[in-house]
Design a protein around this nucleic acid. Structure first.
Lengths: 334, 334
DNA sequence: CTGAACTAGTAAAACGTTTTACTAGCTCAA
DNA sequence: TTGAGCTAGTAAAACGTTTTACTAGTTCAG
C-alpha cells in the first residue's frame, strides 16, 4: 500500500501543498494561515495518520536528525552502556542514533565514515582508532560536528570527551605501592590508541615516582583481536612464571580473562596478590573476593558528548573545540 | 564545502547524468555504454572521491538499505550481543542497522515504529512487547518484512526466531528435582511477554509432572523497571523467609541481583542451595562457585533472523511466515 | 535500398518535501 | 486617491538520484 504524501493531504483539504507544509512545520502563524484552515488540515492529518517522509525531508533540508555513532564493539559493556545513555539523551532531542562497530579495523572505520557521510548524518560521535585521522579531518573540514570520545587523536583538533586515564592508572598503581606491593604487572592491549597509552604511561610514572624499577617483563601486551583462549594462555604464562604481587588490567575484558586464569591455576586474590581492573563490570562486584576497579563516569561522558553535539548542531558557526577530561574513580573493594 | 553530485561528474566527463548513473549502478554494459566512456567516468569518480547521496537514492528507489532494530535495552548484554551479531551479518550484505531501545514502554515502541516507517527502513527486526500488535500488523499489511525475535506475539502472524524457553525452563527444574530439590523458587519479572510466560509455564509443568505441588509463595514476580535496590530487597525477603533449596532466575539481570543478595546475607550456593540463571553472563562463569545457566544460542538466533530478513528482501513476493524455535542449552557448572 | 535491429547514448519525469518569491485583495493613513 | 503594508495564501524551483522513453547513427539481411 502506498503511503500518503503531503499532496494527498493538500488535495483532501483543498489547499496547496505549501500550506500543508507550513502547518506541519509550525510556520502557519508566521505565514499567516487562517485558524480555520489550520484546524481543517490538522484534522485531516490526524485522521489519515499521515507522517512526513523523512527521506524527502532530508534531501530537501540537508539534515537527517540522525547522529552517527562509531565505536569499537557494541557488545562490549562499556560501549553498550555509553550507547544506551547517548541514545536516551539524543532521543529526547529528536535525534536518532545509527551505530556501527569498527572491530578496530581501519578499513572498516573508514568505510563507516563514508557510509555515514553519504547518509548525511547530522553529527558524528566517534571512539576513534589510529589511522583514520585524515578521514576525520575531512569531516571537520566539511564543517560536520564531530565529537571524539573515550580515545583522543592528538593530531586532530576536534572536541573530545574522555576520562583521565593517566591519573586513574597512576592512582591504581600508587594504591598497590601503598599496600606494599613491589612487583606490579600490567596486562594491556597492543592497540595503539591514546587511552591505552595513557594507562601505560600512568603505570610507568607511578613506578618511577616511587623508585621502583620498570620491568618490561611485567608488562603483557595482548594482541587486540586474538582468540580468548590465546589471551588466557599468555596471561597464565605471565602469572606462573613471573614473581608478581599485584596486577592492573587495562580493560575489563582483559580482567575477565585474567580472572579466569586465576580460577584455573587456583591462585587466590588476597594479601599477597592484588588485582585492579579498568572499567567496571558486573562480574567484579560479584566476584569472590570482590574486584577493585577503575570506574569511568559513563553518565558524565555521555552527558558531555551530547551537550557538545547539541551545541554544535544549534549554532551554525563553528564552535571552539573543547576537551573535556573527567576524572575516573578508583573503587577499592575487598 | 558542498559535496559532489552526479551532475558534477557528468559535467567533468562531458557525458549525461544518465550515463554516469548507469555506470555507477553497474548497468553500463546492459545499456551499451562504450568501454572508453566507462573508464573515463570511473576514473573521474575515483579521483574526485564522489559518493552517491544515499538520501536522494532512497527517495527515488524507495529503499534505504537500512534495517531497523527495536529491542528492549541495548545495554543488556543479551541484546548487545545479538545486536552485534546481527550488525555483522547485515553489514556483509550491505545493510546498516539503526536501533533503538524501547525500555519496555509501549508508547516508545509505537513511536519508534513510526519513526522507522517515516525513515523508510527496508525491514524491521523487533523484540516486541505486548500492546504493539496493531502497529506491527500495519507494518505487515503494508508489505514490510518484519521478523520478531526473542519474544513472540501469538496474535500476530509474522516470522519469529527464538529459543525454546518452555523446554529450557522445564529441564532446569527437572535438573533440580533430579538432585533431590523439593522447594524450588522462581524469580521472574511481571512483564507480560511470551518468553517470560513460557519460562513460567515450564517451571510449573515440571513441578506438576514430578508430583510437586506448585506454591505461589515461591514465585517472585519483580516489577520490570523498578530500582535495583528494591529488587534486591524483594529477593532478600524471599530468600530469608521461605524454605528454599533451589532457585531459577528467569533473566540474567535478576540473577545478578540475586547473587548480590546471597553475598549480602552470606548464604552459600552448594549442596543445600542450588541456582540456575537464564541467559548466560560473564559473571556466572567467574562466580565462586560457578553458576549454572541456560544459554540461548545467540549466534543461531542472529543467523536465522538475518536469513529470514534477506529472504524476504530478495523476493518481492510475500514469503511464507516461519517460526524458528531453537533449543536452548542448560549448562551445568559446579 | 530499405527498414529492422543494434549501438551509444540522452532528456526529462519522478520520488516527497521545503522554501522562495510571488499574487490578489483589502485596509487605512496622509 | 494612492500606495504602503497587511492578510491569506500559492506556484514552482530545488534537493540528487533512477529510470523510462526517446534519438541519431550504423549495420546488415533480404
Amino acid at each position: 500500500m502506498k503511503s500518503l504524501s503531503i499532496k494527498d493531504i493538500a488535495v483532501k483539504a483543498n489547499v496547496s501543498i505549501t500550506t500543508v507544509s507550513f502547518i506541519i512545520n509550525g510556520k502557519a502563524k508566521e505565514k499567516s494561515i487562517s485558524e480555520a484552515v489550520i484546524e481543517k488540515v490538522e484534522k485531516i492529518i490526524e485522521e489519515s495518520g499521515y507522517k512526513p517522509n523523512q527521506i524527502a525531508r532530508s534531501l530537501r533540508t540537508g539534515n537527517s536528525n540522525i547522529i552517527g555513532l562509531i565505536i569499537e564493539d557494541i557488545s562490549n559493556s562499556f560501549f553498550s552502556r555509553i550507547a544506551r545513555l547517548i541514545e536516551d539523551k539524543a532521543y529526547k532531542k529528536g535525534y536518532k542514533i545509527i551505530y556501527s562497530s569498527t572491530e578496530n579495523s581501519i578499513d572498516k572505520a573508514k568505510e563507516l565514515i563514508n557510509m555515514f557521510k553519504s547518509r548525511k548524518v547530522d553529527a558524528y560521535i566517534i571512539s576513534p582508532i589510529k589511522g583514520i585521522e585524515e578521514d576525520i579531518q575531512m569531516l571537520l573540514d566539511d564543517g560536520n560536528p564531530v565529537i571524539l570520545f573515550d580515545r583522543n587523536l592528538p593530531e586532530i583538533s576536534a572536541s573530545y570527551v574522555g576520562a583521565d586515564h593517566f591519573n586513574a592508572s597512576y592512582e591504581s598503581i600508587q594504591h598497590f605501592i601503598d599496600q606494599g606491593k613491589k612487583n606490579i604487572a600490567l596486562v594491556t592491549t597492543d592497540i595503539n590508541v591514546e587511552q591505552i597509552i595513557e594507562r601505560y604511561d600512568g603505570y610507568k610514572k607511578a613506578l618511577e615516582d616511587n623508585g621502583i624499577k620498570y620491568d618490561e617483563n611485567l608488562v603483557l601486551k595482548i594482541h587486540f583481536n586474538q582468540e580468548e583462549s590465546e589471551t588466557i594462555a599468555q596471561i597464565k604464562e605471565l602469572f606462573e612464571n613471573k614473581k608478581i604481587d599485584a596486577v592492573l588490567f587495562a580493560t575489563n575484558y582483559l580482567a575477565i580473562s585474567g580472572l579466569k586464569v586465576l580460577k584455573k591455576i587456583n591462585k587466590k586474590i588476597g594479601d599477597d596478590f592484588a588485582v585492579i581492573a579498568y572499567d567496571d563490570h558486573e562480574a567484579f562486584e560479584l566476584h569472590t573476593p570482590r574486584i577493585s576497579t577503575v570506574q569511568q563516569p559513563l553518565e558524565e561522558i555521555a552527558e558531555n558528548v551530547i551537550k557538545l553535539i547539541l551545541k554544535q548542531l544549534s549554532t551554525k558557526t563553528k564552535v571552539e573545540n573543547q576537551e573535556i577530561i573527567i576524572p575516573a574513580k578508583l573503587i577499592i573493594r575487598n
